[in-house]
Write a protein that binds this DNA or RNA. Structure first.
Lengths: 147, 147
DNA sequence: GGGAAAATATTGAATATTCAACAATTGAAG
DNA sequence: CTTCAATTGTTGAATATTCAATATTTTCCC
């Protein structure tokens, strides 16, 4: 089994393709579950990151939830309209805006967490305990490596 | 090490998040390389799938390159303008359109393949032969499982 | 065979994302 | 201290994606 694909290898042998495909499928599954609450996956990520109760700047948050800055700004606008989160100017550095979850957001986040955990339990069930753990380990390591 | 995350686990322990993050990083890397040819990753995928010389219908192609149908249609429009691919009505089933690569597209595809392979070689180098192979195996298996 | 239902691809409007420019604040250098 | 560069977040225009509706062809069933 040759490790890096040859130039004429099918695309399905490329790591980048396998990652994209797996991500697409798992993300779709989750999307379907979260649809019960009418919330996109990214909003779950945002709520979850903010759930530590500390204020997070927009930059921090954008990195954490894997969104570009302008995309995040506009999504946060919507979430503020829905009273899920709110902005506070950072007193230490007035360029920054600190984001917080509202009580409503916390309640929603709990329901979403439950849906997300149940999805992952379902994956573990059919894919296996061992494979899941090992896959997570390898992904973490890849992320650290890619840098 | 608990296998499925608890409801209050950080998002970084969710498989869905690790996949999204890894995919994002690797995809960015590739994007940067392919930028040398001014081509988005999806177009490389399209060219590569069509490189087997057989005609592929739009539906087939959309599945293979992980794009929704209307998105693919519009991207193909652009590639036809650039004379990289062309459409032929399927004589067996006139609802279908068969896509083919042009010579120009083939030449571009070769250059893109070289860039993509070099990226993956670079990953293997820093991430390790063993990890890469194992990660690919696990991803393939997950994809089969997720269904 | 004839007509309804399914499959395939495209279109146009609605929505979302991205890029580049901007405004505000802070940090740093002279 | 003052000016210039860097950081942070937002905005608006350009671009891309998605959803729903459409047109065309085929398949199914009576």
């Amino acid at each position: 089994m040759a490790k890096p694909p040859k130039e004429n290898s099918p695309i399905t042998e490329h790591l980048t393709y396998l990652l994209a495909q797996a991500n697409r499928e798992i993300n779709r599954q989750l999307e379907t579950r979260l649809a019960k609450e009418g919330v996109p996956v990214e909003q779950w990520r945002i709520l979850k990151v903010l759930s530590d109760g500390n204020g997070h700047s927009m930059g921090e948050l954008a990195d954490a939830v894997l969104l570009n800055h302008p995309t995040l700004t506009k999504m946060i606008d919507r979430m503020v309209s829905d009273a899920l989160v709110y902005r506070v100017q950072d007193p230490k550095d007035r360029r920054k805006v600190l984001m917080f979850v509202s009580d409503r957001g916390k309640a929603l986040c709990r329901r979403l967490n439950s849906l997300a955990v149940s999805q992952e339990e379902h994956i573990v069930e059919s894919y296996g305990d061992k494979s899941t753990t090992e896959l997570k380990r390898l992904l973490e390591s890849l992320i650290g490596t890619a840098n």
